[in-house]
Design a protein around this nucleic acid. Sequence first.
DNA 1: CAAAGTTGTCTATTTTTCTAGACAACTTGT
DNA 2: ACAAGTTGTCTAGAAAAATAGACAACTTTG
Lengths: 250, 250
Amino acid sequence: MTDRLPGTRVSNGYSAWRLIAEELRVEIGDGRLSPGDRIPTGKTLAERFKVNRHTARQAIAALAEERLVESRRGSGTFVLGDAVRVHRIGLRTRLSNSLHEQPSASATGRVLHSELENPPADIAERLRINGGKAVRVETSRFTGGQAISVGTHWFDAERVPGIAADIERTGSVTAALAASGIKDYVRTSTSVGARHATALEASLLSLGPGAIVLVTEALDSLPDGTPLQYLVSRFAAQRVRLDIEHPRID
Amino acid sequence: MTDRLPGTRVSNGYSAWRLIAEELRVEIGDGRLSPGDRIPTGKTLAERFKVNRHTARQAIAALAEERLVESRRGSGTFVLGDAVRVHRIGLRTRLSNSLHEQPSASATGRVLHSELENPPADIAERLRINGGKAVRVETSRFTGGQAISVGTHWFDAERVPGIAADIERTGSVTAALAASGIKDYVRTSTSVGARHATALEASLLSLGPGAIVLVTEALDSLPDGTPLQYLVSRFAAQRVRLDIEHPRID
DNA sequence: CAAAGTTGTCTATTTTTCTAGACAACTTGT
DNA sequence: ACAAGTTGTCTAGAAAAATAGACAACTTTG
């Protein structure tokens, strides 16, 4: 009965409980609700968001499933923890030595796939490849069984021929580059964006569909400026923050 | 009829067309689909995502509403543009001088609200406020009529007493600090995360509910290390990427 | 000009989500 | 012990989303 402009959708593609759950997640994430706090009751949330109590309860159930909150019958629903890992981005960023500030944060990596192929134009330009082939390596990284990020690495195939096999063997890009005789490299540019995870990313990072990924695009170069690796990483935004390393002032 | 574990929700809170739209947005964003390209037909998308053609069409309609694609009857649906702005983060990051690489990117700011209040514990600690009050200023920034970010700024009320009025008057944090006799400051730490926009943020940034924001938390300090401003900015992820400035190697 | 393929629009139906109300099970404070 | 407030569970119905099919309007290709 509600007439609307043709082509105008009536909803925004998010169910009511999902929007409520995300709103609560923000309050937990930014400290308005701290671990141990009791969150508003189902009745209160229903009034606040103008939905039925059942709908509000579904939002809570979703957060409970993520172990972000815990409901106790008769007493209320309480914030558990807010475990976000921190990934440092700086001059000598390597995936292997980041993810610190964690008790036992030993990150392990896996090569999912590697391929020799013609690089897309923008990547060829960044790596200064003129007509040659590139190696694309797909990786994923874990800490404590938990998938943290997936990465797409591009290398000039002529510059580092055996890179894919070396990464596969050593489980580390840094070690693989060392095997090719490259002992030092620095990050020359990084840019950060965010978007919804694709279905593939969601499955690799064990996220629900529609979860958010932080996307970093970075270029690593030799100290002399020769581009070495172009890297696109996707982090589960629910679980990581990126910490940017600013230079010291002396 | 489908029996499921108690408490297990049947859906993920995202409608089918929303997930398809986000998947297509990624393909446009990362260059698999470039401006001018024809995207897969409604029929093809329906088959690929195993939904009805009407559902696939709704995903296209959502992207068309954002002017990301344009449908032409009889011929197909085509990618228009992919206008993302770049915000630079570095040692001397200021909102006013960022958003470059744009033809005429003159950012303008507005103070939405300011308040003298007792700061939350974590913010008091970062600003090294011991029991005193803090000034919280809420701002928003525009480029070309388009809202780009909203910010929450915290200052030590004793250190910079008239800051709120100065920001309101000058429309710029840098200018307001200069009015308080502070002529130079540097960024000492920045961290980046991403999450869904709250309803308030969505309305301020003219985003649909459930859109994604890039959240940066930053601390600005005087050259001697005295903390000056704690700043939480939220950028519309659809429209901006953050570009991290790495130090030159000399 | 005709055929094939595309987007746009309409009706009808099924499936899922949200609402509504009631009450049980449990906890907390008086 | 009791009252008030909370979460958990059930039934039923209304509203919205997704499916299904048909066909019109239009473009492109042969």
